[in-house]
Write a protein that binds this DNA or RNA. Sequence first.
DNA 1: CGAAGGATTCTCT
DNA 2: GAGAATCCTTCGT
Length: 207
Amino acid sequence: MEGRNMEFEPVESSFFLMPTLQLAEELLGKILVKETAEGTAAGIIVETEAYIGPGDRAAHSFNNRRTARTEVMFGPAGYAYTYVMHTHCLVNVVSGEKDAPEAVLIRAVEPVTGKELMKKRRPGAKRNQDLTNGPGKLTKALGITMADYGHPLWESPLYIAEGIRPHGISAGPRIGIDNSGEAVEYPWRFRVSGNPYISGTKKNNQS
DNA sequence: CGAAGGATTCTCT
DNA sequence: GAGAATCCTTCGT
């Protein structure tokens, strides 16, 4: 990369116009950028999961269930779907055509900009890789909140930027949805091969 | 209006 | 490895 410019180049809105499973794969290596008053924090996306509502029991929009919460998933692709889980916030990239409730969950990123800011936001993290190696962790590190719900991901202050080309990509079963029947086995989790900034602390610790 | 559950994370044993 | 924390949404009465 050219280097001296700290700013990132957002993707075009047309980038998101592809099948959800393909988008989940294409997002690997891209950069998730969040600009705040405190500064800019950004990380390379290294782990994603696809959620395809109509036939995916693990998705909030399973069987096309439409609620105030999942509303944005029924809209066009490329918007942020933020969701509060327990005490944490998760972020998804809406995918699929209009009226198709599909999305890609961002599970982990590798910090590239604003590491000091991330450390400040996550006092508990002892290692660099603990800053963003989980869906709830990365949102806190980057400063993503429910205020970003429905935000278009090709515009400041929250967007996907062009990044690197991953050396290799691995696919496998998703995590944390073991109460979702057979949907658990779908290989809809994608990650950059060999990258240390990957989630998966408990079970599902496969190579 | 009240009750149950969840795409998680942290801490202690 | 197991269990609690803790906030919002969804569903039932």
